[in-house]
Write a protein that binds this DNA or RNA. Structure first.
Lengths: 392, 392
DNA sequence: TTGAATTTGTTAGTTATTTTAACAAAGTAA
DNA sequence: TTACTTTGTTAAAATAACTAACAAATTCAA
């Protein structure tokens, strides 16, 4: 797998089991013979591996298929209910949590509001209690849960399992991964919220099937999640996709600890600032893009100018990112979800003018479920579910 | 290796051979016992594989080492002279070519000037003749050459081995890879010049040892080569690193088929244009940066302003790229090589001000040899030299 | 209806490769 | 000289895949 690593025979078996499961996850209902053909393994070998995995409950026989001129095939199916995974996302003082089957389909979901101010202990407690309730509701045995994926706002240092900056959750420089692991007694996959949402859209949303994708999120800040070669790319210091720091728009002297130039101009807060400076009647609580579109339609010239400035700014950010990465797809999210057809087309036009290779540009499909789906899929990815039982 | 692929036992052996060779390439002179420890293979297994590779000439025994309290180890060495690789780079009407050993060290090098206008046939002929001469000079048998890496200007479509845009070599939309392969009867690795230079600096230059790197080249255009996880990243349509299209600097209406905004402003030609517009006495043939630095030192205010604008522009390009990728190192090349300590520091200062995570920034070390080194290493990478003999 | 051909899945034996256990060779240190 | 280490090899055991052969189940054509 990794260059320079050596493999033993067990590793081959593992790989072959994974290969079979992989096929079975893509296409449900395949016979042993078909699997042998698709994996380039011999039929006896496939039979043996399948037998093993049936014993483990990973695969099921589900009746017979149509004959192709001979004995009818026994169809096999990946047993998505063999195990379960849990996903959790902290957002401000809210916790969204769900159990899913091995296909990543949510079985039960639950929303919890934490009492403020949020500290580490109350967050852990919430996780614990919600998990228990979810398992009870869905009737899933605790032993069948393979792991939990947790999305946290801010930059997380995954290596050490330490969150170095998780502003809204009240966890600062704590070895969060280990704490959750100890408390819940489950393997934990930790990542920041944007990475989780990126994986969500990649595995179960707009980006299903592509091999590279940039997920661009405009909120209080601007960030992007990057998937290259079907793998999340994190950067050498976990700081990839921090596109809020790009040099786009005016660059007034920033105050200490303030955001990047792109963010200062074109994040939700940035646009609100611009709108207020222009004296536009906008409600700071409501979605800024919708308000601008409405005002512009109603004939407000400054609103139209600002709206175009926003399109121009966002398109510039996209252009710069695309120039560097040449991704197959770009998924827009956050405030950008409120783009109407006209706005989206305007951005596409600008890009066609600016860069030679324009990726497929789409709005995110999963909305608020993206993070949760990503958390779930990050666990599914982390474990290869062909892993062999302890005994063998 | 690739997800979904199944492996057989031969594959494991191959992996283990590669593992051993990998260790031996990193650290010369290791014993069988040390190799066993480093690769997690048993000593008998290492012995068997080593024996095989000694027979094939890939490894050599080179005396004994110091005892560590027991029998003295027999030291093994990777035999860099077992085979040879060839690198070639076309640049304008010039062809630079070299033979190298398996470590990537150049054994013989040769420069050829093609007569203009260059067409495909004369280029092929030059390749053929220069190769013959290099082999004669270095006394290397043709059978020992494993392949040739060829760097071509412009965008190359590697998949099909077709060069879709190689302006200065006169090869347009030809299946270049196959033609060279047929003519020279050698496996060919084709890539564009920037990618080759990137690999050169990565394997044998400033970037040796890092795992991610951006190689930024400022010439008539501006482009970047990207290495992530020790692998060249090409993008979904071979268009990654086309940072010349970034939105940096003024954006006057571009004329048909013209470059990107960043390029129009801050490539060598762009800067020349700006200098001339300011009425600065610059020689269009000589290096623009050096001239600006000199003029600025001599007290020319507009030169100083322009120089700062250039630093600012380049730093912006770097900032944007770094925001997206978070690479471990940034290697500056082309016109940027003429940056003096003050200029480099100015750029570093700006970056510290703009982005939270600044990579190690260095000037390219290999200069004009970068492409050649890259071509050579691209062949070394393409072939895993642990490949097994046909007989087994 | 019968028998040849085909497809699926299994059984038994072979092959390839790694590991374990044991040991010989060659050294150090007390 | 003896005890202990480290290195490398030999022989046997263990894994896991493959080949060949065949049984089971089905289609299809005579």
């Amino acid at each position: 797998m990794i260059r320079g690593r050596t493999g033993n025979t067990k590793f081959v078996k593992q790989m072959n089991r994974e290969g079979i499961l992989h096929q079975l996850r893509q296409e449900p209902r395949l016979s042993r013979a078909e699997l042998a053909a698709k994996t380039n393994l011999s039929r006896p070998c496939v039979s043996a591996l399948v037998e093993e995995m049936i014993q483990e409950g990973l695969i099921r026989e589900v009746g017979t298929g149509e004959s192709k001129g001979g004995r009818r095939p026994i169809l096999l199916e990946y047993n998505v209910q063999a195990y379960a995974v849990v996903g959790a996302v902290f957002e401000g003082s809210e916790l969204e949590m769900a159990v899913a089957d091995m296909k990543g389909e949510l079985i039960a979901q639950r929303h919890t509001r934490l009492k403020q101010p949020v500290d580490g202990d109350s967050a852990l407690k919430a996780l614990e209690e919600t998990l228990a309730r979810l398992l009870a509701v869905s009737g899933i045995d605790r032993d069948r849960v393979v792991g939990i994926g947790v999305g946290l706002p801010g930059i997380t240092q995954r290596r050490s399992g330490t969150v170095s900056h998780a502003p809204s959750t009240g966890w600062m420089d704590l070895p969060v991964g280990r704490e959750i692991e100890e408390r819940l007694r489950l393997p934990v996959v930790l990542d920041n919220d944007v990475n989780m949402m990126t994986q969500g859209e990649f595995f179960g949303g707009a980006g299903a099937g592509v091999s590279s994708l940039v997920y661009m999120y405009v909120g209080t800040g601007i960030g992007a999640g990057i998937i290259l070669d079907k793998q999340l790319y994190r950067g050498s210091r976990e700081a990839s996709g921090e596109i809020g720091y790009m040099r786009i728009g005016d660059s007034p002297a920033r105050r200490k600890g303030e955001f990047g130039v792109f963010e200062r101009n074109f994040s939700v807060t940035g646009i609100h600032g611009k709108a207020q400076a222009l004296g536009l009647p906008v409600d700071p609580e409501a979605g800024i893009l919708r308000q601008l579109i409405r005002l512009s339609r109603e004939g407000s010239a400054p609103a139209e100018v600002l709206l175009n400035e926003v399109y121009h700014g966002w398109a510039s950010g996209i252009a710069n990112t695309v120039s560097v990465l040449d991704p197959e797809m770009l998924v827009l999210s956050g405030e950008m979800l409120h783009l109407d057809e006209a706005g989206l087309n305007r951005i596409r036009e600008l890009l066609l003018e600016w860069v030679p290779v324009v990726p497929d540009i789409r709005l995110a499909e999963l909305r608020e479920r993206a993070g949760l789906m990503g958390a779930v899929h990050s666990v599914l990815e982390a474990h290869s579910f062909a892993s062999m039982p302890a005994g063998s």
